[in-house]
Design a protein around this nucleic acid. Structure first.
Length: 752
DNA sequence: ACCTCAAACATTTTT
DNA sequence: TGTTTGAGGT
């Protein structure tokens, strides 16, 4: 397999063959960016570079996994496995665990996800007796995160008059105090949030010269994907690591920079020239992905942005069909239109479901689309939104795991100390919390030696607390002896979580129970596939995983639904971009600022350049948002596309409703009437389709019928209540007992 | 301490 | 529309 260079064009080949010295590749959408990166690594390996000396940073874990797989095909598994490849966060977490003692952290530190960190901010605001209207949790947390991403610790913050002045103006004078407390609490919980993984890495490399040299020597070759989306602190780390050898290769496209909200800075691309004066740069401008129509439309759109590096993306691909732009009456109509169109194309052209994707600006838009797809029995999967590991019941069990591995993790402690209820209520926790804060200890440290503290608690409560301590200590001891699955199962049982969820026979409760089992199954898998299969190892990077990372085989051939952000780096033959309305795409949050608008435009650029064969754009005249019907106007971006490339279709069948919407300003009662009309129509549609949607077999499920359930086995129907989507069956299963199931979800086969 | 229900609230985008 | 919070009852 030495022919890898033959598969590249001239510019790509130059980039791949450039081994020594700084290199910047500006790669237009669909120009083979990933291919260059992959082949460059293969080229390095073929030139006897040790894989142990190569660091490749990607934007998602999935991208890293995919790249490793491709490299493996060329150089074999043993070389490929020794590459350091992953996201900034996961690679640095690995380094930090290894070097933890140098920054006074234990190596089993916990990674707080966004929810944990929000909860922490919330409790700090409460402890400091601050007004929660002035100090909104989200705003505070975002500010902390933004500061960290610019390498501003609470210490640096307190030295900067400008920063403090900004908080005085916004009447949040205590922000500095909150930030400092936040840092302290994380520290005493032995926890790091996402931003800390970057910040502490930078601190580690700054303070310990020997450690810096060690990693500079180790990572002789550094490659970074999606460089346009790196932020200040990532830039600083890379600069340090690459300083010795300067074998740094960055690949990116300024036109696809869409993460400035999390601190990404396009300036990093421009700085490259300054930091590495003897750099080489190549531009990849030939698009291999899309039809000429799509490439031309994308070029025309991005020209409207003032801030950009000049480049002309071109293609040899055939012209292809025009881009469909469809207008519908409502978001539900839009969903139906997409589902119908998708289905027709699949059937007529004999395509696979996996060749289609539906992209939207916000996660909340997925509902009407899902409904429409379900109605047509089109299989789909959703990326983003609540991932499996963020579900309440999963996080509850994970909190026990986390506490076992790191008992100082206060957020996990608070989560489960009284769940399931064991009589340690809010008042008790508050008392413990005060003592913990005063003595700068974690909640666990206080609880674990409660007799040493003078807390006003009655005997019963003390007893309950000591039982809790005994349980956790037992978990900690067992964790040193057992594998992840065995201790996981033990924890689920002894904590009472298993029985608590098992006893909840509501349909939602059953689903929660199943999710918990799913997590335990995950532990089993982990144990079978890993040598070092203890629980500590299992939970290490769980906070960094997304649904995309643990995709199941059964999800392979399904339509993909996701935000445009999540679609970055992916490509599909057929792409639907929905919700192209003012205040949605571009987002209303982007306001009037030119910079934000340009980012929204880049986001739309990313969306349309995902398409290989055909592109469909759509918008609705009314959309259900915030529990209300909102009138919408078509997005300005649609008018920025070359009209000769578009095929506009109007699916706005019932125009008469527009008569009302046009006069809404003058008369509010009109608006209410319109809303009611829509609401009633919506309800009617829902109930009628639910009847259609019911498979005939569900009609046959009546009292006394014997059925079979995939998990629970044979059972007898005792009662049926509700109708339509809410039709619920009470079933008695042999050896398991009585359960309530929503027929909508439960897969019941009729036996007799 | 715990449960229940009604009112208030909330929406970018993510590692 | 769905979820979270707070008051009030047990």
């Amino acid at each position: 397999m030495n022919n890898y260079l033959e598969q590249l064009n001239k510019e790509q080949t130059k980039a791949v063959r450039h081994i020594d010295g700084p290199l910047m590749v500006i790669a237009g959408a669909g120009s083979g960016k990933t291919r260059v990166l992959t082949y460059r690594i293969i080229h390095l390996l073929k030139n006897k570079i040790n894989p142990y000396n190569i660091l490749a940073l990607t934007f998602t874990n999935k991208a890293a996994k995919e790249m490793r797989r491709r490299i493996e095909n060329f150089v074999g598994i043993s070389l490929a496995n020794n590459l350091w490849m992953g996201t900034f966060h996961s690679v640095f977490a690995r380094i930090l665990r290894f070097e933890a003692d140098k920054i006074n952290y234990p190596s089993n530190f916990t990674i707080y996800d966004t929810e944990d960190s929000k909860n922490l901010v919330k409790s700090i605001i409460k402890d400091l007796n601050l007004d929660k209207e002035t100090y909104k949790v989200g705003i505070i947390r975002n500010r902390i995160s933004a500061l960290k991403n610019n390498f501003i610790t609470s210490e640096t913050y307190h030295k900067s008059n400008d920063l403090m002045q900004a908080d005085i103006i916004s009447k949040r004078t205590e922000f500095g105090k909150i930030y400092q407390t936040y840092e302290n609490r994380c520290k005493k919980s032995s926890a790091m949030d996402f931003d800390d993984l970057l910040l502490k890495t930078y601190e580690l490399l700054s303070i310990h010269a020997d450690t810096l040299i060690k990693y500079q020597e180790k990572f002789k070759y550094i490659l970074i994907d999606e460089y346009q989306d790196t932020n200040q602190i990532q830039y600083l780390i890379i600069k340090k690591l690459a300083a010795l050898y300067e074998n740094i290769c960055v690949v990116g496209d300024d036109a696809q920079s869409i993460y400035s909200f999390r601190g990404a800075n396009i300036q990093n691309i421009l700085n490259f020239k300054l930091d590495y004066p003897d750099y080489k740069t190549y531009k990849l401008e030939q698009n291999y992905r899309s039809t000429a129509t799509i490439v031309e439309a994308a070029n025309g759109l991005i020209k409207k942005n003032e801030k950009q590096i000049r480049k002309e993306v071109w293609t040899h691909n055939k012209q292809g069909e025009k881009i469909i732009v469809a207008q519908t009456n409502s978001d539900n109509d839009e969903g139906r239109l997409v589902a119908n169109t998708l289905f027709d194309i699949k059937m007529n052209n004999d395509e696979l479901y996996k060749d289609f994707t539906i992209l939207y600006r916000t996660n909340a838009q997925s509902r009407p689309l899902e409904e429409a797809l379900r109605r047509k029995n089109i299989p789909y999967k959703i990326y983003g939104g609540l991932s499996f590991y963020q579900r309440k019941e999963v996080k509850d069990l994970l909190a026990y795991f986390r506490l076992t591995v790191n008992p100082n993790d206060d957020e996990s402690f608070k989560r489960i100390v009284n769940y399931p209820a064991r009589g340690i209520g809010a008042t008790t926790i508050q008392k413990i919390n005060i003592v913990a804060n005063e003595s700068n200890k974690s909640l666990w440290e206080v609880v674990n030696s409660i007799e040493n503290y003078n807390i006003n608690l009655n005997k019963g409560t003390l007893n309950k607390i000591s039982n809790f301590s005994l349980m956790i200590n037992d978990f900690i001891i067992q964790n040193n002896q057992k594998n992840a699955y065995d201790i996981g199962e033990e924890i689920a049982n002894k904590s009472g979580l298993f029985h608590h969820l098992y006893n909840d026979k509501t349909p939602e409760g059953i689903s929660r129970f199943e999710n918990m089992q799913e997590l335990l199954n995950g532990l089993k898998d982990f144990c079978e596939n890993n040598e070092n299969n203890n629980l500590t190892n299992f939970i290490q990077d769980i906070a960094l995983l997304t649904d995309q990372d643990n995709e199941k085989d059964t999800d392979f051939n399904k339509v993909t639904l996701m935000t445009v952000h999540a679609a970055k780096g992916l490509e599909f033959p057929y792409v639907f971009v929905v919700g192209l309305e003012e205040n949605l795409f571009p987002s209303m949050m982007s306001g009037e600022s030119q910079e934000d608008m340009e980012e929204e435009r880049r986001l739309f650029y990313v969306a349309i350049t995902r398409a290989e064969k055909r592109l469909f754009l759509s918008y609705a005249n009314t959309r259900f948002r915030w529990g209300q019907f909102i009138d919408c106007r078509e997005s300005r971006f649609l008018n920025e596309l070359d009209e000769n490339l578009l095929d506009k279709k109007d699916f706005n069948i019932q125009k008469k409703y527009n008569i009302y919407t046009k006069t809404k300003k003058q008369n509010s009662t009109y608006k209410n009437t319109t809303q009611n009309i829509f609401k009633n129509r919506r309800l009617k549609k829902l109930s009628s389709t639910n009847h259609q949607n019911h498979n005939q077999s569900n009609e046959k499920i009546v009292n006394g019928v014997i059925v079979k359930h995939a998990k629970f086995g044979k059972g007898k129907i005792l009662n049926i209540e509700g109708d339509g989507a809410n039709k619920k069956a009470t079933v008695f299963f042999e050896g398991i007992g009585q359960k309530q199931l929503l027929l909508k979800f439960a897969k019941l086969d009729i036996i007799s």
